[in-house]
Amino acid sequence: MVTVSTTTRTAQDLTAQARDVLGVSRLTNHALTSWLHGLPGVDQVGCEARAASLGTRSVKTTSKAWAIDTAIGMIDLTTLEGSDTVGKVRSLCAKALVPDPLDPTTPRPAAICVYGDMVATAKAALGDSGIHVAAVATAFPSGRASMPVKLADTRDAVEAGADEIDMVIDRGAFLSGDYLTVFNQIAEVKQACGTAHLKVIMETGELVTYDNVRRASYLSMLAGGDFIKTSTGKVQPAATLPVTLIMLEAVRDWRDLTGTQVGVKPAGGIKTTKDAIKYLVMVSEIAGDDWLTPEWFRFGASSLLNDLILQRQKLATGAYSGADYVTID
């Protein structure tokens, strides 16, 4: 079961804290710009080389078994399609409750991630299992809606029982340098979340540069995000190792700076056990083992769970498993 600290933060509290961090008397777009653009630039070549080298670690036998079970426990099992039905969400919840009927020792994923209108269905299906329900909100995936609509979207999901809210930032505002708008929107959504956990989706595939990823990470943390998340999964490229590396550095440095720990969630495009293990290695090496729990690190994925189960079966039986031994969805 995942435990999540429950703090209600008002937008005023967050602005006050941001002023402290920035050392300014009034939080203006100018102040935010100076601060974000004063962050050290990302060495693109170095970052990609570091990410690639961390991906070459060989993780075998008992370590691999541990990594597989840890990764399963970190999954936000996701279905975010226009064609989602109540039945589809229920079957996904059933999968979360019993990931592998052939082996009851298989751990459960951390959460189910659905659209806001499916929260009640998921909540009912999961009962008191301890598996969280995460809802995407704020006009996911584009984020192109007015603020009242985004807040209503968020409150609606929270009232339906969502434990976690995955919001998208306004990439248009971010890219045009209107950081204060992005800050205010995140802070207001955080307030609307109440006790629900807020994950801030930066959609790194649309942010163009690594420097922007670093800036968006800091801005999201400053505005009260409990998690920073790479992508919606609707835009290519989605999660990549270098981008996640930058985010892990950001949460590590943010804890040193403010004492607040923030989680990281790569989402989209992580399909294989090998990929997942690369991410776990990176979490341990960059952020540290404090982040190596479902409370602080999640995978946004759907097909990843099946591949992890296949690998788990391979370790248990000694024979390669196949798609006949896992569910289709």
Binding site: A319, Y320, G322, A323, D324, Y325
Partner: peptide
């Protein structure tokens, strides 16, 4: 052996 044991063959 691996081919013979493979569950997806």
């Amino acid at each position: 052996t691996w081919l013979a044991a493979h569950r997806d063959v």
